[in-house]
């Protein structure tokens, strides 16, 4: 019994020391600056952000030419952040004349991307949205009353053109038009680049990624088809190869 007690105490002390050795190691590492927080942590607002991961869900992007205004994303969205309108083009196909994503509502769940049948919706890894800085060129604010106003493709282009210039240098008519359609203090933050909602570079990157994905998918489908064909081909004609090979 005494031996058991001694063993208890010794083991207890030993396991405590083992734990403390581990944490002490971290502590020293951190103090020396050779590991731990000093090596891993990035102080984000001061230091530039890094890509968090390949599957990060950042800005929501609509590639307007592909969009068929099927409202699948609208149905899937749990927070109702889409407002869209469509019209028939020359080939009698539906295309988006308006596609607003209210970024102040979006929860970045990605359900719309899954629902999209044409892969026109996607999410880029970029996540910095700061209307005070660069982002103000790509985003605008609307008041609740303005949400119902339609912004068609030409309007969006006009908005984009106007937003690049300082407000003071605008013509009176343009300024009035701006005031009618956007409100700098409004609660709703809407993306603005074309009918997709991001910078040109991001748009290119997203397009490239989507293309690559699509090609990979097609290649995989083709490979699967070829394999299926190869697998399906032998059974109908087993005798000839069996007879021919020996």
């Amino acid at each position: 019994m005494i031996l058991a007690w001694v063993h208890d105490v010794v083991e207890g002390v030993r396991s405590c020391l083992t734990g403390m050795r581990t944490t002490g190691h971290y502590l020293l590492e951190n103090l020396r600056g050779s590991g731990g927080a000093t090596a891993i942590t990035r102080e984000y607002p001061e230091q530039p952000a890094e890509r968090v991961g390949a599957r990060q869900r950042g800005h929501l992007v609509n590639d307007a030419p592909r969009c068929i205004v099927c409202h699948a994303c609208d149905t899937a969205c749990p927070v109702d952040c889409f407002t869209m309108d469509g019209e028939r083009d020359a080939d009698n196909k539906m295309r988006a004349s308006r596609f607003d994503i209210d970024l102040s509502k979006c929860i970045y769940c990605g359900l719309c991307v899954r629902a999209c049948p044409t892969d026109s919706l996607s999410m880029t890894p970029a996540f910095e949205v700061d209307p005070r800085h660069d982002g103000s060129r790509f985003l605008f604010r609307r008041s609740s009353g303005q949400l119902g106003q339609r912004l068609d493709a030409p309007d969006v282009e006009r908005l984009q053109r106007l937003a690049d210039q300082p407000r003071e240098s605008l013509a009176a008519a343009d300024r009035a038009w701006l005031d009618q359609h956007i409100d700098p203090n409004g609660p709703h933050l809407i993306g603005m680049y074309g009918l997709g909602y991001f910078t040109p570079e991001q748009k290119q990157a997203a397009d490239a990624a989507r293309e690559a994905k699509k090609r990979a998918k097609e290649a995989a489908a083709a490979a699967a088809k070829a394999k299926a064909a190869a697998a399906a081909a032998p059974p109908p004609a087993p005798p000839p190869p069996a007879g021919g090979t020996p």
């Binding site: 031996l3 058991a4 063993h7």
Partner: peptide, 25 residues
Amino acid sequence: VLVRAANARYGGRHPALRRLTGEGA
């Protein structure tokens, strides 16, 4: 001497494990 004897008797087995098996209670 005590620690060595204890280790010889129960060495390698964690006290919690030992208590579970009812050894040396």
